[in-house]
């Protein structure tokens, strides 16, 4: 027979008491449950691709079709300047992180409500749910990136940027998405209005992000204010790192975006942790 009763030292002791104070991030718990992040991400992916006819093709179709429409209306008809780059390449490079971000907002905002049967029955750090739902989108992102390579080849656009910082900007996209996603997910537990707000929010956000147009279209004096939208930093960063677009190179605008993104994450975490205790009772 196995030794079931471990020595007193290994037994984790849990103390239950009424919640007190503002928050404790309890990162140790999160670390203990790290495999759950992996499994839930994997579940989201698996289920998504099992149930849909086109599967991975959706990851490509959405940004691709948007790029085509943008190219016709803004590029060809609207003559929107694209920083001396072929407009389709310019637009698609912006759409790449944008799709990741917009999808992340939607899935994260539903992540708690959709998994309420888990929340009401079992303990685990709730942060894992929005996290895993966002991470599943990275696979879509990678697939869509391959298509970017194809588009660049077609238009003969060289990889003119330093490339490797893309990893950093991908991370920035995820941080921003998680920050906003945590707010939306926690609010959605309490106010189902969030279901209506999220589509509107991402539509609105798309317009204030330099995807169909370049951020150099924004007057000099307004640019810092404009960069309060962290996705400005992300999209500029992508275009700089991949296409070598000079106006996107790291500068004051970039730092403002990074700062706002981190603020969103920290505030989102604090708010989420604070609300977390009531999820099981309210969801």
């Amino acid at each position: 027979m196995k030794a079931i009763t471990p020595s007193a030292n290994d037994v984790p002791v849990v103390h239950l008491r009424p919640p007190r104070g503002w928050f404790s991030l309890n990162l140790r718990d999160l670390w203990q449950y790290r495999e759950l992040i992996y499994f839930l991400t994997w579940r989201d992916l698996k289920v998504r691709y099992k149930q849909t006819l086109l599967g991975a093709l959706w990851a490509v179709l959405r940004p691709f079709m948007t790029m085509v429409v943008f190219s016709i209306f803004f590029g060809e008809l609207g003559k929107v300047p694209s920083e001396n780059l072929p407009y389709p390449v310019f637009a698609y490079t912006g759409l790449l992180p944008w799709e990741l971000f917009a999808t992340a907002l939607t899935v994260a905002s539903h992540s708690l409500v959709n998994n309420r049967h888990m929340i009401t029955k079992i303990y685990f750090p709730r942060v894992i749910l929005p996290m895993a739902s966002i991470l599943a989108g990275v696979v879509d992102f990678l697939i869509a990136s391959v298509v970017l390579a194809g588009i660049m080849l077609y238009f003969g656009t060289p990889l003119a940027g330093p490339v490797w910082p893309v990893i950093f900007f991908l991370l920035l996209t995820l941080i921003t998405a998680l920050g906003v996603g945590l707010w939306l997910a926690a609010l959605n537990v309490m106010y189902r209005d969030i279901n209506y707000i999220t589509p509107f929010l991402s539509q609105f956000w798309l317009l204030i992000t330099p995807i169909a147009y370049g951020s150099s279209l924004v007057p000099e004096s307004w640019r810092i204010l404009y960069a309060l939208n962290p996705m400005v930093g992300v999209v500029n960063g992508f275009r700089w790192a991949l296409l070598g677009m000079e106006s996107g190179a790291p500068g004051p605008m970039m730092w403002v975006s990074v700062l706002v993104s981190l603020l969103l994450l920290v505030s989102g975490l604090i708010f989420f942790r604070r609300m977390e205790r009531q999820f099981a009772d309210m969801v």
């Binding site: 984790p12 008491r17 919640p19 029955k121 303990y123 099981a280």
Partner: peptide
Amino acid sequence: SRVTDPSEGAAEIRGRVGSLLE
């Protein structure tokens, strides 16, 4: 099983709690 927090009082639990209610 830590699904929800108490409103008052305290408890100490030694060891992992597994429940068949889930």
